[in-house]
Nucleic acid binder design. Structure first.
Lengths: 342, 342
DNA sequence: AGGACCGTGTCAACCGGTTGCCAAACTGTG
DNA sequence: CACAGTTTGGCAACCGGTTGACACGGTCCT
């Protein structure tokens, strides 16, 4: 009765816009709802009807309109990822991990940046919320209340932060820190500086606390320096504090800061590792070709992204979070550590 | 007559799902279409009606449902970005540029990776096409026919590739290459190797051709080596070829390859820059802390991303591509070049 | 006073799918 | 052969917006 405007008189005629299920329905002599069932409700129809419709569908190059599907179902097949800083190399492998898993499961990745601002992060999350099935927050600066509020609206997954009742992943920092301190102890270091990241960073606090604990067990002392920006510049700016602390070795919140410190040392005539040992965190791109190559504590960022996407999508689809994979850090010995002088 | 299921008896009652224009309409005593007009058709309604509706809307926290809007309008307020490799640092600033501009204009960024495969790239583009208002292809491996086919369906923008009739941007490589060759000529280099990127890369060919031309003008000769993977590994693998060529200086297709070459030199006992001068391309993150720091030809990647997003969105909204900003490369002198021996 | 015109808000159709419910057809059984 | 049970496919409502057409009331003009 009501012929959709897309239709043309001749069934072979070129439709105006993209092909819809209405076109497929007309061409295969069934109703639109039957087409819908044939395509995403396998088994509901008789085998030959389903087969026939499928054949027509890809003969005419039918492609489902995701918006049209999203409207009645409320499911967009999209995951959102919010980072504080897109250009921070620490996220590259993570983003790739998320994208690969998402694409593999038929999901699309939406990426946004919060520019290290809690307000902007919240605003961005709100803006994205309507378009995604679930949201991954990486190293979020939001407080627990905001996080919970978001989690009430859509499945949420937090990376590098623990929030009671919210699924998330934070790689175990203990093994990496233990191995790093064992290594430093073996070389004779006793007093170690920790170059802290931003004051709002949960992960920086975790690393600091774990360092304190682990150092205590080994009779070593930790002096905390900072907080500082988690960037090259933040690391460069910290050299003076490090020198003042009298520590013979430094552990930085992340590789960016460690690399910045390395640079400041070179500029300031401090020889690394002879005069100062430096250890980074994460093992980002570039850490192996600094000079000297940076000794660091590796975080398996690719796997973290994988895990985040996998479990978020499980939550979206099955309402339960998927199996947890334990993820651990690992000490990577390169050239920026040596026994202290004297 | 037909009360939407969202409604509750009391107007103060909590709606089940998110607030819709139907809720706002009921609460402010007008029809849904009036609400729609009040919100995105300023001036069409009387000033107080509009104001009243706006107040109700944000009093109840109304948020537009992007899917619902996309259906009748065909506009998703989304731009897609397809990269060959998410973890390649060359793209970080570009991605950020695109994201910032997109977010600033109320658009959402969808990111996907083609893993250096033309087939996967095409498939990905098809998959995304229905969800985006426009697509940005970076260093695409697609052939011109595929690109044109995509451009027929949605606004398309290509970065680092010129395709007749398709809007795009490719930073002018001439100034950077001229300055680099002038520098090498001044130091006494005559025979220079070009470490080519993937054979499918339009940009690698452009850089190679421009190099040939520019070298010719200066009485220098170029030996092309490759093609090779545009990665650290590709650069490492090329050392033998470089030595065999007898060139005293190398220009690599990109910084990743240059850095790989640097590493191979260190491992192979070739001193840079004393025995071999190395110049990269792009000035990616990390190029300034290799050892020696890499001399390179900078591409303004952040601006490229900016330009791409700006002009794509202009095409989407006004049907015309926006104003073009000329973008040029620039020679950055660091420590990996020196006069040849003898 | 009558008519043209303008400003304002509503009606209803539409975008392209999904899905609960029902009817027709088909199957098997006593 | 009648009847219950099971397939199979269609109808129509719905998701949440947008927008062309129109009705209504008030102004202004002749």
């Amino acid at each position: 009765m009501t012929e959709r405007q897309n239709g043309t008189g001749t069934s072979a005629g070129r439709a105006r816009g993209p092909v819809t299920i209405y076109d497929v329905a007309r061409l295969s002599g069934v109703s639109p709802s039957t087409v819908s069932r044939a395509l995403n409700n396998p088994g509901r129809l008789s085998a030959d009807t389903e087969k026939r419709i499928r054949e027509v569908a890809d003969a005419v190059g039918y492609r489902l309109n995701p918006m049209a599907r999203a409207l009645p179902t409320g499911r967009t097949h999209t995951v959102g990822l919010i980072l504080s800083d897109i250009t921070n190399p620490v996220y590259f492998d993570l983003v790739r991990g998320v994208e690969r898993v998402a694409a593999g499961r038929g999901y699309i990745l939406i990426l946004a940046e919060s520019q290290e601002s809690a307000d902007l992060e919240n605003e961005t999350a709100q803006r994205l919320l309507a378009s995604v099935d679930g949201l991954i927050l990486v190293a979020t600066r939001l407080d627990n209340a905001d996080i919970r509020a978001l989690a009430e609206r859509k499945p949420l997954f937090v990376v590098n932060r623990k929030v009671r009742g919210i699924p998330g992943v934070v790689p175990d920092v203990v093994p990496g820190i233990r191995a790093a301190l064992d290594h430093l102890a073996e070389q004779g270091h006793r007093s170690i500086a920790y170059l802290a990241g931003p004051s709002g960073s949960w992960m920086s606090r975790l690393r600091g606390r774990t360092l304190d604990l682990t150092a205590g067990e080994r009779g070593m002392t930790i002096v905390e320096i900072g907080p500082g920006e988690p960037t090259l510049h933040g690391g460069q700016a910290a050299l003076q504090g490090v020198r003042d602390s009298g520590a013979t070795a430094v552990l930085a919140y992340n590789d960016l800061m460690a690399t910045g410190l390395l640079k400041a040392c070179r500029d300031g005539g401090v020889r690394v590792p002879e005069e100062l040992s430096v250890i980074g965190f994460d093992d980002i791109f570039g850490s192996d070709f600094t000079s000297p190559p940076l000794t660091t504590i590796r975080t398996p960022l690719g796997l973290v992204g994988d895990e985040a996407a996998r479990r978020l999508i499980a939550a979206v689809e099955k309402g339960e979070e998927g199996r947890r994979t334990p993820l651990a850090t690992e000490f990577v010995l390169r050239g920026s550590t040596a026994p202290p002088r004297g």
